Structures are given as C-alpha cells and as structure tokens.
Simulated assay, not measured.
Amino acid sequence: MRTQEMALLVRDALLLPDGRLEVRIVEPRYLRMVAEVLKGKYPLAFGMFRAKSDLPCYPIATQCEIIDFNLLEDDSLSIVLEGHQRVKILSAYEDSDKLWMGKTLPCLNWAEEPIRGEFELISAALEQFYQVNPDLFELYSKMNLEDAAWVSQRWLEVLPMYNKDKLMLLNQPSCHKTMDFVLQLIKSHVD
C-alpha cells in the first residue's frame, strides 16, 4: 500500500464508506478546495473534528467524492459527499490559506455480510429512522439494508455519541461490535 496526499475536510460529523453527507461550504478557502478537488488536483478525505491534537481530526478518515452540489439562497455552496475508502492519516499540515492536507494510507473497509436473526431489528430501526428524517433519506438513491456493514456504518454516522467512542467501534476489524452496541441500545429503549 502506498501513501497519498489528500485535502482534509474536517467537521464534527462522521462519514463512512457508502455513506452520504451534505456539507455547507461558506469560506472562500473551502470553495477553492472544492474546485481543486473537482478538477482532480488531489483527492478529498473527510475527518471527524478532534480538539487538542497534532492532527485536525481523528486519525481515521474516509476518502470521498463530491457527487452533487447546489448554490444556496445565501450564496453559500452545499455539497453532497459520498464515502468510499477508509484511510489512516499519518501526518497533516496547513497550506498557505489554512486548508489542511494529509498524508494518508488506505485501511480495510468492513466486509459486506448479510444481516441475520435478531440483528434484522437494527436494519428495520434504521429504515424507520430515515423515514422520519427525510433530509437524510433523500441523500440515498438506494439503501442496502440487508448488509450488516452498511447498516452499522449508517448508525455510527447518525448516533449522538462522542467522536472518540465512535472511533473505538470503527477500529474494530468488523461491524460486529457496532451491531451488538446498536442492538442493545434499541432493546434498552423498547423495554
């Protein structure tokens, strides 16, 4: 595996492979970054904000692409990102106008696997969550509710948890601990 330099877009949110996220871009430096990414100057990685660190975000980020954009009424730009590949950020630096660039190394994405047994509950609950949150639901042309990795990652993106706790689950070799965690969370609110 070889390292690659990527532009880092850092927010207090999580984007994982096959996930989608809408981000509002206001500052001119970020508009320049979006333009350079779209021109193919460098790839884009999305990272969860982390205060008091050498890096601007947690060391696990997601390489993503801009799949849509809209000019908003206030002249800011709304972009829709789609996650593809998890990456480890080895180092980062700020360029001349304070945009972060990072040296990254690809990480393994969680493998697809079917949801079975009692874990079908987390898939059904995610489908309900998206129905009551149409802004998120509209980002997806297709939902992969039969894939445990896809469902687990979507839960991690939307659950109100500390980023460090999300990272602990993300560092697992598979989605199983996340599935267990979400199932217990759902069951505790049903009982």
Rank of each mutant, 00 (worst) to 15 (best):
M1A: 05
Q4N: 11
M6Y: 14
M6E: 11
A7I: 07
L9E: 03
L14C: 09
L14N: 10
L15T: 08
L16R: 09
P17D: 10
G19D: 05
V23N: 04
E27Y: 13
P28N: 11
L31Y: 09
M33D: 08
M33T: 08
V34H: 02
V34W: 01
K41S: 12
P43F: 04
P43E: 07
P43S: 11
L44E: 07
A45I: 06
F46Y: 14
G47V: 01
F49C: 07
R50A: 14
K52Q: 15
S53V: 08
D54T: 10
L55V: 06
P56N: 00
P56V: 06
C57S: 13
C57L: 06
I60G: 07
I60D: 07
A61E: 07
Q63W: 09
C64L: 11
F69A: 06
N70V: 12
L71A: 14
L72S: 10
E73W: 04
D75E: 13
L77F: 05
I79K: 00
E82N: 09
G83F: 07
G83L: 03
Q85T: 05
R86T: 06
V87C: 02
V87K: 01
I89H: 11
A92L: 02
Y93I: 05
D95S: 12
S96P: 04
L99Y: 06
L105E: 15
P106V: 01
L108G: 13
L108P: 06
W110P: 00
W110V: 00
W110A: 00
W110L: 00
A111V: 14
A111P: 11
A111K: 13
E112W: 13
I115R: 00
I115Q: 00
E118V: 12
F119S: 07
F119E: 14
E120V: 03
E120A: 00
E120Q: 12
L121P: 01
L121W: 03
I122T: 06
S123F: 01
Q128E: 15
Q128V: 14
F129W: 15
Y130I: 10
V132Q: 14
V132R: 13
N133Q: 09
D135S: 12
F137P: 06
F137G: 08
E138V: 02
K142W: 10
M143F: 10
M143S: 11
A148I: 07
A149L: 09
V151S: 00
V151W: 01
S152M: 02
Q153N: 11
R154T: 02
R154N: 01
W155M: 01
L156I: 03
E157H: 09
E157Y: 05
L159A: 02
P160L: 08
M161E: 02
N163M: 15
K164H: 14
D165L: 13
L167H: 07
L167W: 02
M168C: 08
L169M: 10
L170S: 02
L170R: 01
L170K: 01
N171F: 02
N171C: 09
C175H: 14
H176E: 05
K177C: 02
T178H: 04
L183R: 08
Q184N: 15
L185G: 04
I186M: 04
V190H: 13
D191S: 14
D191A: 13
